[in-house]
Each structure stands twice: as C-alpha cells, then as structure tokens.
Computed example of a mutant assay.
Amino acid sequence: MQMEDLMQPNMNRASKASKVPVQYDLQADIEELRKLLSERHADPRKQRFGDLYDTIQALIAAGVSHAAIIRKLKSMDLSISPVTFKNWIAEMRGEREGQVASKRSEEQSSQMQEAMRRASARGVDGRAGQ
C-alpha cells in the first residue's frame, strides 16, 4: 500500500467536514478586528516615536545611520528593534504623504469648482448681454 492510499480517506473526511456551514457574527468579527487597530495605535512607544518623527527624518536626511538613531532612542528609554524602526518610518511617511496628497486633492477640487463657477457666471453674463 502506498502513502497516498493511506492519506486519501483522511482527506475525504476533512473535505466533508469543511462543507458544514459555519455560523458567525460578522459585526462581532469586525469589532474584534477593529480592537487590533485601536490597540496598535495605542502603543505609547509608537506615539512617542511619532512625536519625534520630524527630528528623526531630519537626522536621516543629514546622514545619521538608523543604528545610531536606534541607539540614541534606546538611551532615551525608547527601545525598538531595527525592523520596527524601519516599519514605523515607512508607515508614518506613508501617512504623511497620504495627508499631503489628500490636502492637494481637496485644493485642486476647490480650484476646479471655483473655475467652473467663474465659467458658469461668464456664460450667464454673456447670454444675458445678448
């Protein structure tokens, strides 16, 4: 008898069991997952890192190594791993860029609305004068 023959009956039982409908509460699942999000943002180390973000970015731009910054943060009782450091930098950079892009989009939208309003007013004035 081959190994595949021995495994086949178990695989069939598992596949039959997987067809049983599972009852779950979608809203409860969503709430549980949202707790993870709020817990993640509640990390006091991350909040402190966020407060220091602009200074950290200035140090990086000036050529200070990540390792030196991480050592300095550790001496300030803010111990984070190099991976966490890189992840938080990337995440915060993305959030800031997203905020800038959103603000730029809002400005462009309001400029477009203003241009449309002016064009509409000229069109109305032009027709009224004829």
Rank of each mutant, 00 (worst) to 15 (best):
Q2P: 00
Q2G: 03
Q2T: 06
M3A: 12
E4T: 07
M7P: 02
P9Q: 04
N12W: 01
R13P: 00
S15C: 10
A17Q: 07
A17G: 05
K19T: 04
K19I: 10
P21Y: 03
P21Q: 02
D25T: 08
D25H: 03
Q27Y: 01
E31F: 00
L33A: 12
L36W: 07
L36C: 07
L37H: 08
E39V: 13
E39C: 15
H41W: 02
H41E: 15
A42P: 03
A42M: 05
D43T: 08
D43R: 07
Q47H: 05
R48P: 00
R48Y: 02
G50W: 00
D51H: 11
L52M: 05
Y53N: 09
T55H: 11
T55G: 13
I56F: 00
Q57A: 12
Q57W: 00
L59D: 11
L59R: 12
I60Q: 12
A61V: 13
A62G: 10
G63N: 07
V64D: 06
H66T: 10
H66Y: 11
I69P: 00
I70R: 01
K72M: 14
K72F: 11
K72L: 15
L73T: 02
L73N: 02
K74I: 05
M76H: 08
M76S: 12
D77V: 03
L78K: 01
I80W: 00
I80D: 03
S81D: 08
V83M: 08
V83S: 15
N87I: 13
N87C: 14
W88L: 12
I89G: 09
A90Y: 03
A90E: 14
E91L: 07
M92V: 05
R93P: 02
Q99R: 04
S102T: 09
R104V: 10
E106D: 09
E107T: 04
E107N: 04
E107Y: 01
Q108D: 09
S109T: 03
Q111Y: 01
Q111W: 01
Q113S: 05
M116I: 10
M116F: 06
R117N: 09
R118C: 04
A119D: 13
A121E: 15
A121L: 15
R122G: 05
G123I: 06
G126V: 04
A128W: 10
G129Y: 08
Q130W: 13
